[in-house]
């Protein structure tokens, strides 16, 4: 076993939590990610594996919030799958074994920062951040959009006051600043 320690996207040894009146912003360091793209002509086979793994295939604009592996649709015949990092550190290898030649699998764990936004003012906060129609979105709805000029995924989670944002990891500090400003603004 190696002795290299990870740091979080915000640079800490442990994830950061910021609590406001009606909003809590939590850096979520526990998600391992990999993208899965169906090979040409193998789309049906790829979907079959997805269905077996998640219970359903995430359709356009949707996530399947399954446990332990979950996934959402990124684009035509392309998905992002996630799972707890503690059990799925090698998620790309694990998925490649499952999908074989039916899909291209690429590790994405390091590419994204994940923030969980929870609280009564979650919708108000989203309205200050991006153009997603947050009030119309239901659990499992996913949108790729722009927050503070950064391409992000916005996922409505199961709890009514919970939205998850995946943003580019290198810009985690910028994204966090935008979240903090918006939270203060609506507090």
């Amino acid at each position: 076993m190696h002795d290299l320690q990870t740091i979080t996207a915000l640079g800490g040894a442990t994830p950061r939590v910021d609590v406001f009146n009606h909003i809590t912003i939590t850096e979520n360091d526990g998600v391992a990610l990999a993208s899965v793209a169906a090979r040409l002509g193998r789309e049906a086979a790829c979907r079959k594996v997805l269905k077996k793994l998640l219970g359903a295939v995430p359709e356009t604009g949707r996530a399947v919030l399954h446990d332990p592996e979950a996934g959402f649709c990124m684009g035509p015949d392309q998905w992002m799958l996630g799972a707890p990092r503690v059990s799925h550190e090698l998620i790309a290898d694990q998925l490649k074994t499952l999908f074989g030649d039916n899909a291209s699998v690429t590790e994405q764990s390091g590419a994204w920062v994940c923030f969980d936004i929870t609280g009564a003012a979650m919708r108000d906060m989203c309205e200050r951040l991006c153009a997603v129609p947050i009030r119309q979105m239901v659990a499992g709805d996913v949108r790729r959009t722009v927050i503070h000029q950064l391409g992000c995924f916005v996922i409505r989670r199961t709890a009514d006051d919970h939205v998850r944002i995946f943003g580019p990891r290198a810009s985690a500090a910028t994204l966090h600043h935008a979240l903090m400003t918006a939270a203060a603004s609506i507090a």
Partner: peptide, 8 residues
């Protein structure tokens, strides 16, 4: 299939 891994 293409995907950016710059930040990964």
């Amino acid at each position: 299939q293409l995907i950016s891994t710059t930040e990964a």
